[in-house]
Design a protein around this nucleic acid. Structure first.
Lengths: 147, 147
DNA sequence: TCTAAATCAGATATCAATGTATCTTTAAGT
DNA sequence: ACTTAAAGATACATTGATATCTGATTTAGA
């Protein structure tokens, strides 16, 4: 469903939102250590999110990553499309080329209609779950999140 | 969502079900040519499905692949789990290790509940769509299927 | 029984996703 | 200014998915 890279990105952003508290920035070493993601690889992922204006980064001592927008304004959809693209939301479940998410009837694949409903719900989930949203649900089980 | 290999497998099986008609077997050359899948690669995929008792294969002249079970008894779920495994149906959407499809509350990830509904519908789709089912829907648009 | 047509099996090749290493650049603190 | 700690950037390495190649095996038909 989602690539490993994308799952790392989501978990790292959640970690950032939960833990940044007063400090504006958290370094990749801390995040990668806590979430068990290879440090330089996490660096690349977060750099890419910074390039797309979801995060900000500052170099130098006490540098690290922070948010470029309010956490209530960052949805899972934003992260997923940056890392994995729109394939999940647009292309045919069984890979038939002419069958797209909004396609005329004659070109629809045999599972198009059933999958359309599910895809719509998926899209809904990803667009409506914001990081702010998620963080408010996680109160009290932060320890478990370290896995 | 599904690997390319898995999409190939599904499309090849649909092709087989539609076109086998009187003949019991269809060769991989015909299928791969019509569906534009590399011939030897398709061979491996179908061999693996034969190994799992979904298809039968016969060597020699006029050999090829046919069904080992009635097409109404082969679901998309069968194909997907053979090729891609159960990851999609069992593991956490955002990759948190302790969060599984049937997990106690304290270990659920923050999107577990919303995704559970969608996952259940997905499972339903894959388990209830059989090849027989699909073929009966495709009457009249077989030409489009060649893509 | 010989030949040809087809899959089977296993080794190899390619490519994209994932992961690593190294060096450069930036900025805080002295 | 100098040092140091951090991310940036680029090149490189590894792995798994995807694709190809080659020869062995099986079977129909002459």
């Amino acid at each position: 469903m989602l690539s490993n890279t994308c799952k790392y990105a989501i978990r790292a952003i959640i970690y950032l939102a939960i833990n940044k508290g007063d400090e504006k920035k958290i370094g990749i070493k801390e995040i990668s250590k806590e979430l068990d993601i290879p440090t330089p690889f996490l660096g690349k992922i977060l750099q890419s999110l910074a390039k797309h204006k979801l995060l900000t980064s500052t170099k130098g001592p006490h540098g690290g990553f922070g948010f470029a927008r309010p956490v209530n304004d960052i949805s899972l959809y934003d992260i997923v499309t940056i890392i994995d693209g729109r394939d999940l939301f647009e292309n045919c479940l069984i890979g038939m080329q002419p069958c797209k998410s909004n396609e005329e009837d004659s070109l629809r694949c045999p599972v198009h209609d059933q999958f359309s409903e599910i895809r719509a719900k998926l899209l809904d989930l990803f667009k409506n779950e914001t990081i702010g949203n998620i963080v408010s649900k996680m109160d009290g089980k932060l320890d478990f999140f370290k896995l």
